[in-house]
């Protein structure tokens, strides 16, 4: 099994004709994701080659893409000024899972978009996230397919390359993944740690979870308490930013220690208090997972 996406995922790419959108559309299609449509306002009626001569239609609106192709999932690569609007359009058009890759979305735009997403009961991943991949089945976003293999570990993270680092080490050690989910580095995001942990807990194939957090906010702390109450599979945690100074944004808009809140120390302590094995270095993630799987 996998969480959130599988072979039935039918993807529409918003911003398909842009640099990132077109590159990653081909990557996703090559990986095996069913990319069924693209959206770029003003380019409706044209088509886009996803590889091997296969062409998919481009629409002006997500609504038309859903109507004509039965798309149920959207990947958003549109520039930051228009990203919140793109999320709301997808939610309005009946998309079930929206994956917003765009980095740099104004946070107040996101508060409005998120309110609509919640009203519609839609799952949003991101923004400012690498998306997700269910190895061997489907990927939506930008996670490199070649560093993953199918297997028993669920991975959830606020980061991009740090996740790749951890996943790659698992893969090299022969330990595969059910699904790897990047939830995004912004202060306001859709799907959070608990949503992913719950999905992994409900998935029969996921035997252990890697949770990679960073400084800023309280999402990891709440997730740790949730794990203790509700999850009966082992969780290995890692927190980036122990050396980050307070009050400074460390790359990700959400990675900031505000006042005394959101320090790495506090998160690591809460992990330990709630029975989560904490990896001191990225390389220790793999070793803790091996141990918890009895390998």
């Amino acid at each position: 099994m996998s969480v959130f996406i599988d072979r039935s995922t039918r993807l529409v790419v918003q911003g398909i004709t842009g640099r990132d959108g077109s590159f990653h559309t081909r990557q996703m299609s090559e990986y095996g994701t069913q990319v069924v449509a693209g959206v770029t306002p003003g380019k409706g009626g044209q088509s886009f080659e996803v590889g091997n001569g296969t062409r998919i239609p481009i629409f002006n609106t997500v609504e038309a893409a859903v109507r004509e192709t039965g798309a149920n999932t959207s990947a958003i690569y549109v520039p930051p000024p228009f990203a919140a609007g793109a999320i709301m359009e997808a939610a309005d058009a009946g998309i079930e899972l929206i994956v917003a890759i765009t980095e740099g979305v104004p946070v107040q735009d996101m508060t409005r978009a998120y309110a609509l997403v919640q009203d519609k009961g839609v799952r949003l991943l991101g923004p400012n996230c690498p998306g997700l991949i269910s190895p061997g089945k489907s990927k939506v976003g930008i996670i490199p397919g070649q560093i993953t293999i199918p297997g028993p570990v669920g991975v959830v993270s606020r980061s991009g390359t740090l996740t790749y680092e951890a996943v790659n080490q698992l893969t090299v050690a022969g330990i595969g993944q059910t699904t790897c989910v990047g939830i995004g580095g912004d202060p306001i995001i859709g799907t959070n740690f608990i949503d992913c942990l719950r999905a992994f807990g409900d998935d029969d194939d996921t035997e252990a979870v890697v949770m990679i957090g960073e400084i800023g906010g309280t999402d990891e702390q709440e997730a740790a308490r949730w794990v203790k109450e509700h999850l009966d599979i082992p969780v290995v945690g890692f927190i980036a930013g122990q050396t980050a100074p307070p009050g400074r944004t460390m790359g990700h808009a959400g990675a900031i220690i505000s006042g005394s809140e959101g320090t790495a120390e506090e998160k690591i302590r809460t992990f330990k208090e709630n029975g989560i094995a904490v990896a001191e270095r990225p390389v220790d993630i793999r070793d803790h997972i091996k141990e918890s799987l009895g390998l």
Binding site: T161, I212, E214, A240, Q242, M250, G251, A264
Partner: peptide
Amino acid sequence: CVNGAGLAMATMDLVKY
């Protein structure tokens, strides 16, 4: 000098380690 914010933070932490 690192690619990615999370990996950059993890690298700083490892320097300290």
